[in-house]
């Protein structure tokens, strides 16, 4: 049994190469729950919390890359919240302040739960997920990265390094439904991003399918109804129809947190509201 706490990505990757079965631990907010609840028995662990590269934020004129280990609390305010407002909003809804001090995009991506709050934002922004192994680097589209319920395209010898997303001109927002007014797992969530330059809208839904769902048909339908390159007020009827179309693309299930019918209803309302908010600003 061993614990390795590497300082650099290179050290982390060589530790992984030396011990491919080692458990990668980022913030711990998912994995430690599994250990505490007797669902996982760690033998060897590589803890990534000291790898500075995984907390880096890189901005060029068009894109922003956020290190997979950057805690959510760093995204709630400041530059990230300014450049990617939907991510700032989503970050603020993650768990509690204590969780946001530890949890990160890397954790959301690694666990790949459809309820992970960061994921709809990454999906709506067509983020690229940057992966590295000892021998190679690759970037995978978020849409290909999320494979199924709690399954992703990361290979066992890879580390999630960062997510890169475009800095988009236009309104963007995230909204979430939970049964409590704080510290709640999403029953349904929605991210909407308007790209004024491209004249497109992107909508992604959380917790209403095996993975986060992009609503491409609703997006395309809307583009035929509104000139998204112009700032336009969205009337309630249009927003409602948009919401209905979004909802038809959801694939929700009944579980102990909610029902499929409610989830479908909720994403219709959330997406309609976000669309209206986008027009109001």
């Amino acid at each position: 049994m061993s614990v390795v706490v590497p300082r650099t990505l290179t050290d982390a990757l060589s530790a992984m190469a030396a011990n491919p079965s080692a458990l990668l631990l980022q913030g711990g907010t998912d994995l430690m729950v599994e250990i505490n609840f007797n669902h996982r028995k760690p033998v060897d662990v590589i803890a990534l919390r000291r790898v500075a590269e995984l907390r880096a934020v890189k901005i060029d004129g068009k894109t922003i890359s956020i290190g997979a280990g950057l805690p959510y609390q760093e995204m709630e305010t400041g530059q990230i919240a300014q450049l990617v407002p939907a991510l700032g909003q989503a970050a603020r809804t993650v768990g509690s302040p204590q969780i946001r001090a530890a949890g990160s995009l890397g954790g959301n991506l690694g666990t790949c739960s459809p309820a992970g709050d960061g994921l709809p934002v990454l999906s709506a922004l067509d983020a690229m997920i940057n992966l590295r192994s000892a021998s190679a680097s690759r970037a995978v589209s978020i849409h290909e990265f999320m494979v199924g319920v709690k399954r992703n395209a990361k290979m066992p010898d890879e580390i999630i390094v960062s997510a890169t997303m475009p800095i988009v001109r236009g309104w963007q927002g995230y909204a979430k439904v939970g049964v409590r007014n704080a510290m709640v797992i999403s029953v349904a969530s929605c991210c909407l991003v308007v790209d004024r330059a491209a004249g497109t809208v992107a909508v992604a839904l959380g917790a209403v399918g095996p993975t986060v769902i992009r609503c491409r048909q609703a997006e395309q339908w809307l583009a035929t109804k509104v000139d998204l390159k112009q700032t336009a007020t969205i009337d309630a009827k249009l927003a409602a129809e948009f919401g209905q179309r979004v909802a038809t693309e959801a694939r929700p299930i009944d579980d102990h947190r909610s029902t499929a019918d409610y989830r479908r209803h909720a994403v219709a309302k959330l997406s309609g509201r976000l669309l209206q908010r986008s027009g109001a600003q």
């Binding site: 711990g28 430690m32 729950v33 250990i35 509690s96 204590q98 969780i99 530890a102």
Partner: peptide
């Protein structure tokens, strides 16, 4: 599982749930 805050401690200046920190790390 980090849902109650009773185990809150400060690690390197941040308040975190100690139940979600693997001690050996």
């Amino acid at each position: 599982q980090g849902e109650c805050g009773s185990c809150t401690v400060i690690i390197d200046g941040e308040a975190v749930c100690s139940c979600l920190v693997m001690a050996a790390t």
